[in-house]
């Protein structure tokens, strides 16, 4: 508590929270003016089509709304939805597997503690060189690589791969896997570094090699956290792989975009509900798992 005399010289005392608020308002104002926004842009241009879209939420379609196709092929939308959701899961799972492998290698290399802190005391100039120069170089390179992979969005990777290889399911998987490997690598490295160092120091003093110190000292302590984070990334991978459909891959986004462009709004809602249900189930399952892993 500041006394009255202390506050006397400060006519307008603004605390740290006040500054946070003021700078948020100023930055927001800049962004608003820079984009030239006005609330009037929020008035919908074509109110009737929006009304139809929202009304369709109550009547998701199972059969195609295409009058030519109509009831000739029963439950085609439902089939598409299941097919698309299946592909969404497959794309997410395959890319997550690749990114776990990549992320683990990156995290392993980037863990500076493994090279410097709790390994064998160095003997001789060669070992010292290894410890003081080679180790930090490898660790820094791995960290920079992880950051670079992460900084390019998966959809941009998809664009690059489409330009480089042409379309094909594998390019989609790779596009997802690269940035995810970067993220996993970074987080794995942080978790490995933050795990308690006592077990690995004890192992080192018993004469364990570097690899043994890593796999039996560091890894077991960090493993539950790494697993929990990987489960969370699976959710993100599902969302990203749904979006990949907009670029021609056969995930749920593909069907959604197609139906929307044909103005078959009831079909769109079927796909939206399907995607929502999938994410909701995975969220509930992985949430329970993560709580169990944390204890």
């Amino acid at each position: 508590m500041r006394s009255k005399a202390e506050l006397k010289g400060k006519p307008f005392p603004v605390g740290i929270r006040g500054w946070v608020l003021i700078s948020a308002i100023l930055v927001g104002l800049w962004a608003w003016l820079y984009l030239g926004l006005s609330p009037r842009q929020l008035l919908p241009g074509d109110a009737s089509s929006i009304g139809r879209f929202l009304a369709a939420a109550l009547s998701p379609a199972l059969d195609s709304q295409d009058p030519g196709l109509g009831e000739a092929v029963r439950y085609i939308v439902l089939q598409n939805a299941l097919h698309g959701l299946g592909r969404t899961v497959l794309f997410a799972a395959a890319s997550l597997l690749l990114s776990i492998l990549g992320g683990f290698v990156l995290g392993f290399l980037a863990t500076s503690t493994w090279w410097a802190g709790d390994t064998i005391t160095s003997r001789g100039p060669l070992r010292r060189l290894l410890r003081q120069v080679f180790g930090p170089t490898v660790s820094a390179t791995a960290k920079i690589l992880a950051t670079l992979l992460r900084s390019v969005h998966e959809l941009f990777w998809a664009l690059i791969f489409l330009a480089a290889f042409g379309s094909g399911p594998l390019t989609g998987v790779l596009a997802l896997a690269l940035p995810f490997a970067g993220t996993l690598g970074k987080i794995y490295a942080e978790m490995l570094e933050e795990s308690p160092s006592a077990p690995s120091k004890a192992l080192r003093d018993l004469g364990a090699t570097r690899l043994q110190v890593f796999f039996f000292g560091r890894l077991p302590a960090a493993f539950p956290d790494m697993m929990a984070y990987t489960l969370y990334r699976f959710e993100c991978a599902l969302r990203s792989s749904a979006v990949l459909g907009f670029f021609g891959y056969p995930t749920i986004g593909y069907f959604l975009k197609l139906s929307f462009e044909n103005l078959y709004y009831s079909e769109v809602w079927t796909y939206l509900y399907g995607l929502f249900l999938l994410i909701f189930l995975v969220d509930a399952w992985s949430g329970t798992l993560r709580r169990r892993l944390a204890t």
Binding site: I50, S240, V243, F246, L256, L272
Partner: peptide
């Protein structure tokens, strides 16, 4: 649950 990209796609219309 619904990705940003899909929200944006719908909102643009």
């Amino acid at each position: 649950a619904i990705p940003e990209y899909i929200w944006a796609f719908l909102l643009i219309q």
